[in-house]
């Protein structure tokens, strides 16, 4: 079986040799990830790779002046973990995401996977956007197929994958519906299914729940954790909602409004987590207290 993903990208977890029936077994067949299928793989157990970013810098020229978005960023992301990037609006979260994904090159810095240098664009990633960004004239199934086709997934594998990932987000019975027939939350689920269906190494999520009402967002957060547990993907999640970050993440990168990495907080509360959990609330309040204290003192003194 040919490689099921785009030739320009690499996949670390795919098993390209199997073509089994698509639906019954959630982790076999046509290029599915076979390794990290349980929650154990989410912790750094010594086997998961570590992606280390060091001394990242990005600035933009604005006329003759140069505007530095961030500088000297150092952080690590463990494969299979859930990492959030948090910070006030305009702090460079999206720019950082674009640098990691290779959409824009950094001015300085390097990325290593288990000690070996890799180019930013080498990660095979996919995106969940703030809005679902579905094609209204295609059915839900065809929307997922759009991404599969773009990634060069062989036609015979597409239908199985579409069904499987729509099933994963609980929308398999909506496969022939059009986006406008679905609620906002459902549409965002389709966006998640589409991003996962191409079987990325890293899933970038750029404030995916910020335009949903709180009830829907709450439900989707819980479902996202289930999906993450089932697929074992590395997720990098951008948000400015501290409760959301603490509830979802293993690790939170906090940028201040000067684009400096102010803190990397690890959230050790056991999973499954419940909203309102005391440990989570405590982590959040400590994190935010330190953040506001840092803002008050100003970057020069920190």
């Amino acid at each position: 079986m040919a490689d099921t993903t785009a030739s320009t990208t690499q996949m670390s977890q795919s098993d390209d040799t199997t073509t089994g029936p698509p639906v019954d077994e959630s982790h076999s067949g046509d290029g599915e990830p076979t390794a990290p299928a349980s929650s154990d793989s989410h912790s750094a157990d010594g086997q998961a790779s570590v992606i280390a970013f060091s001394n990242l810098k990005k600035s933009f020229a604005n006329g003759e002046e140069s505007f530095t978005v961030f500088e000297g960023l150092d952080f690590e992301i463990t494969e299979g973990s859930f990492t959030s990037i948090m910070g006030p609006s305009g702090c460079g979260k999206s720019t950082l995401l674009n640098v990691i994904s290779g959409l824009i090159p950094p001015d300085e810095g390097e990325i290593r996977r288990d000690g070996e240098i890799v180019e930013p664009g080498e990660f095979f990633y996919s995106y969940v956007f703030q809005e679902p960004r579905l094609l209204d004239w295609l059915t839900i199934g065809e929307n997922v197929r759009f991404a599969l086709r773009a990634q060069g997934v062989p036609p015979e594998d597409q239908s199985g994958r579409i069904y499987r990932y729509l099933e994963l987000v609980g929308l398999e019975d909506k496969i022939d519906s059009y986006p406008q027939q679905l609620s906002g939350g459902m549409r965002q689920r389709v966006g998640i299914a589409r991003a996962l269906a191409v079987d990325p190494e890293i899933l970038f999520m750029d404030e995916p729940f910020s335009s949903l009402d709180e009830f829907t967002a709450k439900e989707l957060r819980a479902d996202l954790l289930e999906i993450w547990k089932e697929t074992g993907k590395t997720i990098i999640f951008v948000t400015h909602n501290s409760s959301e970050a603490v509830f979802l993440s293993d690790s939170i990168l906090i940028l201040d409004d000067n684009g400096q990495l102010f803190d990397q907080v690890s959230v050790d509360a056991p999973r499954p987590r419940t909203i309102g959990d005391e440990a989570l609330i405590e982590t959040e309040s400590t994190m935010m207290e330190q953040f506001f204290a840092h803002l008050d003192t100003g970057p020069d003194e920190s």
Partner: peptide, 12 residues
């Protein structure tokens, strides 16, 4: 946004 989405999935 749709074109950006298509670019992110590397559509031709």
């Amino acid at each position: 946004g749709l074109v950006e989405m298509a670019d992110a999935f590397e559509a031709s």
